[in-house]
């Protein structure tokens, strides 16, 4: 099967290793991975800021770029959630897109959901040992229905010990432009999240979205915590990561 990888703009710019980790996992599951080179962004920053027409142009671009794939998979609940749950609204008045859009949303998956429910991956290539806590991103959890999938995958790694944190389903405070417009509130939410992560006793917080990742990582560092590591679930599962 031909799987189109939606790299996401934040992975492209901030953490390319996650894109390569996603490719490795998909190939392990027997996929032919296709990476459209013209891809940029799903349009969510514009959509969530009320800039609907700006977002629409990008949605149409994604629609074209992934037309030839059997699936669209993104290492992000946020971007896959944008495509799957918000494109139908965004493109609702765009003539002639309804059928193409229905095909796109039906084949769009968050990475761990795809690995568990479509590829039914039995083993993962990464080796990791330590205590990890999983941070559910709002969009993975509440838009894409991702909760057990990453945990099931992590449990396939013998060295991984999972520890749930308190208030695990509470937002980390990122919220896209919210984190800049309301920096103080956003930082407080991130601070609460960091405290819960630290209290879980985990060596690593694992997550599936770049926004949360930058936010939590940045707040942990500002708090002076240089020991708790922050890793994307794809990096852990694939055994590919920075340093």
């Amino acid at each position: 099967m031909k799987v189109g990888l939606f790299v996401t703009c934040l992975v492209d710019l901030m953490r390319p290793s996650i894109g390569f980790a996603a490719i490795k996992l998909l190939e392990q599951g027997g996929c032919e991975v296709f990476v459209p080179v013209t891809q940029t962004c799903c349009g969510q920053p514009g959509y969530n800021s009320g800039e609907r027409s700006a977002a629409k142009g990008l949605a149409l671009k994604v629609l074209d770029e992934f037309e030839a794939c059997d699936y669209l998979v993104a290492p992000s609940g946020s971007c896959s959630g944008m495509i799957k749950t918000h494109y139908p609204d965004l493109l609702s008045d765009e003539p002639g897109t309804a059928d193409r859009l229905a095909r796109l949303t039906a084949k769009t998956y968050e990475l761990t959901d795809f690995l568990v429910n479509v590829l039914k991956l039995e083993t993962v290539p990464g080796t990791f040992s330590g205590k990890v806590t999983y941070h559910d991103s709002c969009s993975s959890l509440r838009e894409m229905g991702v909760k057990q999938q990453p945990r099931l995958l992590l449990e396939k790694m013998p060295g991984v010990q999972l520890a749930e944190m308190e208030e695990g389903e509470t937002c980390c405070g990122f919220g896209g432009t919210f984190s800049i417009k309301f920096g103080e509130i956003s930082s407080r939410l991130a601070d609460n999240k960091c405290r819960n992560i630290e209290e879980s006793g985990a060596d690593v917080v694992v997550l599936g979205d770049l926004g949360c990742m930058l936010n939590i990582e940045g707040r942990l560092h500002r708090r002076g915590n240089t020991t708790t590591r922050v890793m994307h679930v794809a990096e852990v599962l694939a055994g590919i990561h920075r340093e």
């Binding site: 790299v7 992975v11 492209d12 710019l13 901030m14 953490r15 390319p16 290793s17 894109g19 390569f20 990476v35 080179v37 984190s179 800049i180 417009k181 309301f182 920096g183 103080e184 956003s186 930082s187 407080r188 991130a190 601070d191 930058l214 936010n215 990582e217 940045g218 707040r219 560092h221 500002r222 920075r242």
Partner: peptide, 26 residues
């Protein structure tokens, strides 16, 4: 331009090459 971010957080810097560059190289 993003002072709201660094008011309470740091930002981990990227490694210096984008995914699209590295992918094209590979």
């Amino acid at each position: 331009l993003a002072g709201g971010w660094t008011e309470g957080r740091d930002m981990r810097a990227p490694a210096g090459k984008t995914f699209r560059e590295l992918y094209a190289q590979s």
